[in-house]
């Protein structure tokens, strides 16, 4: 009995409608939180005594970095669920999430290098965090490339799920090897993140942005999930009824 929701959710029409109903519940709070976070971060928070205003790009950079990792993890977990329980909805979720995760990774790289210009005097440093992020971007590209290489959607789903699981196991290994590599060649990163002495006026907007970005991801992935479901079910009758109505 407890599994009924699990199977209900796996039914495409139900999934499509549920995703549609849930979207506003993510989208509106996301918009409010991001606006509040931006006001707090860009106007209300004081300039940093070392970095001046340059640190403010952190309000976009840090949440993007967090989501780049979280989305990959979601893809792997969804892929594993899809493999183990043969749940097509989980695969559809992974497929919907991948390009969003890749976009967040790209955003992290771009904002990181923009932040790097005032910090290091150059747009690119082989900083361990940025380097890891670049490798994560390659993992996303590989995942999406593998997906695109199959004509059979079901096979694409399951093969790419194996890749995501392998990838997510390797992400920490890659990250720590890069950190280790970096410690051999230069000092630790000069970036601002994780500094425990951040005053609340800086910290609160950052937390709002984290939450806002996460909800924003939720909204976008739900919309994309609807698209995935429609594409996969385009031959089914309920799609005609749904779109005709």
């Amino acid at each position: 009995m407890t599994w009924t929701w699990f199977h209900r959710l796996a039914s495409p029409p139900h999934l499509y409608r549920t995703a549609g109903r849930l979207t506003p519940w993510f989208a509106w709070p996301a918009a409010l939180l991001i606006i509040a976070g931006l006001i707090g971060g860009l106007w209300l928070a004081p300039p940093d005594y070392q970095q001046g205003d340059a640190y403010r790009i952190m309000y976009v950079h840090a949440p993007s970095a967090w989501l780049s990792l979280m989305v990959y993890t979601i893809m792997a977990v969804a892929g594993a669920i899809g493999l183990i329980w043969r749940m097509k909805a989980a695969h559809a979720l992974a497929a919907a999430a991948a390009p969003i995760g890749a976009s967040f990774t790209l955003a992290t790289l771009v904002t990181g290098s923009l932040w790097g210009k005032p910090m290091w005097g150059t747009y690119w440093q082989w900083d361990p965090r940025l380097t890891s992020e670049l490798l994560l971007f390659f993992l996303y590209l590989g995942y999406m490339g593998l997906r695109a290489a199959f004509e059979d959607l079901q096979r694409a789903d399951r093969v790419s799920a194996v890749l995501a699981v392998v990838g997510v196991i390797n992400v920490p290994i890659i990250h720590y090897s890069v950190v280790w590599w970096n410690s051999l060649h230069q000092g630790p990163s000069v970036m601002y993140l994780g500094k425990p002495t951040m005053p609340p006026s800086m910290l609160v907007p950052l937390l709002l942005m984290f939450l806002g970005f996460t909800l924003f991801f939720g909204a976008v992935v739900l919309v994309r999930l609807q698209g995935e479901v429609l594409n996969r079910e385009r031959a089914a009758h309920w799609v005609e009824e749904e779109l005709g109505a």
């Binding site: 490798l135 390659f138 590209l141 590989g142 490339g145 390797n170 890659i174 890069v178 590599w181």
Partner: peptide, 15 residues
């Protein structure tokens, strides 16, 4: 594609 999939995973080996 095979190279794109394999090389990022091989970074720790390289390092």
């Amino acid at each position: 594609l095979l190279s794109l999939l394999t090389l990022p995973l091989a970074i720790p080996v390289l390092i």
